[in-house]
Design a binder for these strands. Structure first.
Length: 199
DNA sequence: TCACTGATCGTCT
DNA sequence: GACGATCAGTGAG
């Protein structure tokens, strides 16, 4: 994926990334997944890690778009974001869930489960299945390397929106985007049934 | 399938 | 010193 193809606006990028391919190369082999759920974290968004300005942790959010922002959460999990907007602004898209396409044995081993539906369903699981951690923070996802984005193998089908998950601020904003009929989307079934997006 | 809860630690106040 | 863009396990329906 070329950087010029990526929308600058974080909300547009969140939609754009649905259907996009993630490729993860390690010495153990290649794992490939198709993004089915994202959340946008906008400039001036009180729920965004960039809201209080640049710190060592969130530095990548303020860099060029199309890079990885990886952070550690709840003492157990890593979360993977794609940076958005222009340099200095501070915004990104959390990749919340994906459909496994290749390297399933590798992902099953990393996750310790045989249930393929749960390999990449949720941001923490996705990072674990793809062996994403701090070492990849700041990585350029538009360049050859251990983790990169590629054009969709199958374009996204109907897209729906909802409130973002797990927040205490800006809770009402509908900045979560997901493929409506995908079984690889996170959250309870009730939450998956949301309004189909048209705007 | 859903609601609830404990685990666990880096980051910033 | 509090809290967090989460998850697995548990128990009830």
């Amino acid at each position: 994926m070329r950087r010029a193809e990526l929308p600058i606006d974080a909300r547009e990028l969140a939609r754009f990334l649905l259907g996009t391919t993630i490729v993860r190369d390690t010495p153990e082999g290649r794992a490939v997944a198709r993004i089915v759920e994202t959340e946008a974290y906008l400039p001036g968004d009180a729920a965004a890690h960039s809201f209080r300005g640049e710190t060592p942790r969130n530095r990548a959010l303020f860099g060029p778009r199309g890079h990885a922002y990886v952070y550690f959460i709840y003492g157990n999990h890593w979360c993977f974001n794609v940076t958005a907007e222009r340099v200095g602004v501070g915004a990104g898209v959390l990749v919340r869930a994906a459909e496994p396409l290749a390297g399933l044995e590798l992902m099953r081993a990393r996750r310790g489960t045989e249930r393929d539906r749960d390999l990449l369903r949720g941001p923490g699981r996705l990072a674990q299945a793809l062996a994403i951690d701090r070492a990849l923070d700041g990585l350029d996802l538009c360049a050859a390397g251990p983790l990169w984005l590629a054009a969709p193998l199958a374009p996204a089908r109907a897209i729906a929106t909802s409130r973002r998950i797990g927040l205490t601020k800006e809770v009402e904003r509908r900045l979560r985007f997901f493929e409506r009929d995908s079984v690889y989307v996170s959250g309870p079934a009730r939450r998956r049934a949301a309004v189909t997006a048209n705007d």
